[in-house]
């Protein structure tokens, strides 16, 4: 009789443990799904802004062309960078191509300084504001995306959630770093 009672206790204890483990796993799993959705959502935000920038460029080039006949090379590099960025297939590729496009655009903006007529054009001014804002939105969306990725990656790599992540195949995501050759060249002032 005593043995049966002990058996019952064992079963109850085991069942309780399994239940607790299940609840913990479900909690971690939901946290991982939430993190992954946040990453996807943040990425779609970047995507929207990148597309807007791609749509903006032909307009910008068209407006500026009349004023800047001698800058064919600048226009070509922008158009080329744009088509490369539009063809990017994954986050890493997009990082590179969008970085090149950002560079080409900021070079263009420097060249614009030499054309006061263009700078006074109302249409161009409003395009310039839209472009500045789009660049900012890309930067802020990237900020939010990278925060989300860091948060999610931490979950997939830290104990104990990494066990659940391994069980259900949650893989780590890439950061979106805009790789700008120009940015790397900027001399850093050290004190």
């Amino acid at each position: 009789m005593a043995g049966l009672g002990a058996m019952m206790m064992m079963f109850l204890l085991l069942g309780g443990l399994v239940l607790v483990a299940a609840v913990v796993v479900i909690g971690i799993y939901n946290g991982l799904v939430g993190g992954r959705n946040q990453v996807d959502n943040a990425w779609s935000q970047i995507d929207v802004q990148l597309k807007r920038r791609h749509d903006l460029i032909p307009n910008l080039v068209e407006t500026a062309k009349g004023y800047m006949q001698h800058e064919r090379q600048t226009f070509e590099s922008i158009t080329q960078a744009r088509s490369q960025a539009m063809g990017a297939k994954n986050v890493t590729e997009a990082s590179k191509a969008e970085g090149a496009l950002t560079d080409a655009l900021s070079k263009f903006m420097l060249v614009v300084e030499n054309y006061p007529d263009l700078k006074a054009n109302q249409n161009f001014l409003s395009l310039q504001e839209t472009l500045t804002s789009t660049e900012n939105k890309i930067a802020f969306a990237r900020q939010a995306y990278n925060d989300a990725v860091l948060n999610y990656n931490n979950k997939t790599q830290m104990f104990p959630s990494n066990i659940v992540a391994g069980m259900f195949n949650f893989t780590k995501r890439d950061f979106f770093e805009i790789e700008s050759p120009a940015e790397r060249e900027v001399p850093k002032v050290k004190f």
Partner: peptide, 16 residues
């Protein structure tokens, strides 16, 4: 005021 709207949208994106 397009610029004001742009800035508010930028901050909306940054703050999610």
């Amino acid at each position: 005021h397009p610029m004001l709207f742009n800035i508010v949208e930028e901050m909306k994106i940054a703050a999610q």
